[in-house]
């Protein structure tokens, strides 16, 4: 780079090119400030106010919202419900993902067609999935209950049954996320050499043992990723609730984000809604942290 004759004027040119280059981040910076940083600060502020739409004035009430949240039985139930939804979905979709990934492993089976089928549920708009499964779950004419009736079981009313609605949503979510998990885990498996596995079999491991003691530990990173992302997605679930159940029946599917939506945009308690949104952040981070700790323990 140090060519003779380039010395003169090099510095000023460099400076000019530096400021020119820095200007390239301005658009990203602008969007970031306006639509990320300012809203986050604003939301934080709102969570300390009693702003309710339709009332002209609002004032800072300090920790008032958060104190009320502690007493809010509906919120507590929503948290438990969302936790249940999130953990069950993450666990079963990761389990299914592992099974699929192990079966898919190996040249011949890694055909694009099977991967495409596995990936489609997780990338089509969830609204599509939601209306499809509302039809599948139709108590009288839906295919789910028809198949159950052929097996001699009287199917429940699924989405309109307080006992089954959440389970119905979990089954749908597991179906939706399983293939995506499988492909992530499959990429993780790709890093595991076949030789290690073969030598373990030669050393007298059963196939099951080699899976438990060799494949699973090596899958640690991708498994962590899959569980973390599924837990977070679970905690943030909103769309299916909005389109399929509206939080019902009898609040059986009111999740945290849906509760926040109801507070802020249906009962217009903006300050309270903002406080709820921060509680959701805390809980999500807490679970993320727990998984992270758990995985670090499994060195």
């Amino acid at each position: 780079m140090r060519l003779p004759g380039m010395r003169a004027g090099k510095k000023s040119k460099l400076k000019r090119s530096l400021s020119g280059s820095l200007a390239l981040v301005l658009p990203s910076l602008f969007i970031f400030l306006l639509f990320e940083l300012v809203p986050v600060i604003y939301s934080f502020y709102l969570s300390f106010t009693d702003w309710t739409l339709g009332r002209t004035a609002h004032q800072v009430v300090g920790l008032g919202n958060f104190k009320a949240l502690g007493q809010d039985l509906e919120l507590r139930q929503a948290v438990l419900r969302t936790g249940k939804y999130s953990l069950f979905t993450a666990f079963f979709s990761a389990l299914g993902g592992i099974v699929l990934a192990l079966l898919l492993r190996g040249g011949r089976r890694e055909r694009p067609l099977s991967k495409t089928v596995l990936l489609i549920p997780s990338i089509v708009p969830f609204v599509v999935i939601a209306s499809l499964w509302t039809w599948i779950y139709d108590p009288y004419y839906g295919i789910a209950n028809w198949l159950l009736s052929r097996a001699g079981v009287a199917g429940p009313a699924w989405l309109t049954s307080p006992r089954w609605a959440l389970t119905a949503l979990i089954i749908m979510a597991v179906w939706r996320e399983m293939g995506y998990n499988a492909l992530i885990l499959l990429a993780g498996l790709g890093a595991i050499s076949g030789e290690v596995l073969e030598s373990s079999l030669i050393d007298g491991c059963t196939k099951f043992q080699s899976w438990i003691y060799i494949v699973l530990p090596l899958l640690k990173n991708s498994l962590f990723f899959v569980l973390a992302i599924q837990i977070i997605r679970g905690f943030e679930v909103f769309g299916p609730i909005y389109t399929m159940t509206g939080g019902g029946p009898a609040k059986a599917t009111t999740t945290m984000v849906y509760y926040m939506y109801q507070k802020a945009f249906q009962s217009y308690q903006v300050g309270y809604g903002a406080a709820v949104s921060w509680v959701i952040v805390l809980i999500t981070f807490f679970f993320f942290f727990m998984i992270w700790k758990g995985f670090r323990g499994v060195e």
Binding site: F35, V40, E236, Y261
Partner: peptide, 15 residues
């Protein structure tokens, strides 16, 4: 900031 969940942004962004 990528870790900030979107739902926190929804209410303030609306206003």
């Amino acid at each position: 900031t990528y870790c900030i969940p979107d739902h926190v942004l929804i209410i303030p962004s609306f206003f």
